[in-house]
Amino acid sequence: MNAHLAEHFDDPPQQKEAAMLGMWAFIATEVLFFGVLLAAYIVCRWRFPAGFADGSRHTDLLLGSIETAVLLASGCIMAVGLREIQLAKQRSACLAIVITAALGVAFLVLHGMEYVDEYHEGLIPTVRYLQNGTDADSMEVFFCLYYVITGLHSLHVLIGVVLLLVIAERTRRGHFSPHYYTPLEIAGLYWSLVDIVWIFVYPGIYLAGHSA
């Protein structure tokens, strides 16, 4: 009997299909969740174009670009890790997953640096907002949405890092093989979600204002 087969499944393919279906359903709910936030951002940007453009110009384009590169690189390395386990290369697969998690931590550190800089500039609504002028109120709306969207995304990155470290440890212990690596696939799908959300956040928040 397959050691990885749960009692309520008939065979490994059925178990994998159920797990993948559950993960895709979760991803669908997350897409709806972030979709509503991004839709709210688009509507408010249309309603307050000057304030949102000014707010976007206050974001750190360099750090945002580095964060984007870090996340995209981490997604590629995660795919390498999945391929390595399919080739029965557990050690290199474990290393790839650990590197992916490390890049996730790097992303969080970089984004934390942004938050610290924005605090010193007085760009955090209700905490320390020191901006004045005709567009100060609409720019405050921009930063409210900015912190909600990027904060929730960072939370997802943090959850992903913890998940990857657990998967890496299980990989190191030999729990996965070319015949069973469903948890690793699911972790890869989750990390792809983190990447894709940021691909929409980066141009909308960082690039739009700096290109104006």
Rank of each mutant, 00 (worst) to 15 (best):
I167G: 06
P203T: 02
V127Q: 00
S177W: 08
L87E: 10
W46G: 15
A212E: 15
V161E: 06
L158F: 10
K16P: 01
G204K: 11
G174P: 10
V70H: 03
A25K: 11
V70W: 04
F33C: 05
V141E: 02
R91Q: 13
A79P: 01
I27F: 08
S211R: 11
G160N: 09
F33V: 05
V194E: 02
H4P: 03
L63V: 13
V194R: 01
F34A: 08
S192C: 12
A208W: 12
T150K: 03
F26L: 11
L110W: 01
Y206W: 09
L164S: 06
S56V: 01
G22D: 04
A88I: 05
G112S: 09
H179N: 14
D10K: 14
H4F: 06
D11V: 02
V141R: 02
F52A: 01
G209A: 10
A39H: 12
M20C: 08
I196C: 05
F9N: 10
A28Y: 12
D54A: 15
P13Q: 05
H111A: 10
V166G: 11
A39R: 11
I99Q: 09
L95R: 15
L87T: 09
H111W: 07
A50P: 03
L82K: 03
V109M: 04
Q90P: 02
C94D: 06
V201L: 11
D11I: 04
A25F: 11
L61R: 05
F26S: 08
A102V: 08
A3R: 14
A93Q: 00
N2M: 06
H156S: 10
L184V: 15
V43P: 04
H175L: 11
E30P: 08
T171Y: 12
L207Q: 04
F33P: 09
T29W: 02
S74T: 04
I196D: 01
H8A: 03
L37P: 03
C44V: 05
L130C: 12
I124W: 03
F107V: 02
E169C: 09
I124L: 04
A79E: 09
D195C: 13
Y146R: 06
G55S: 07
L61K: 00
Q131P: 01
I199R: 06
L5Q: 01
E84K: 14
S192Q: 12
L110T: 02
V98P: 05
Q15W: 07
G112K: 05
L63Y: 12
S154G: 15
Q86G: 13
A79F: 10
I66K: 07
E30V: 07
T100A: 05
Q131D: 10
L95H: 11
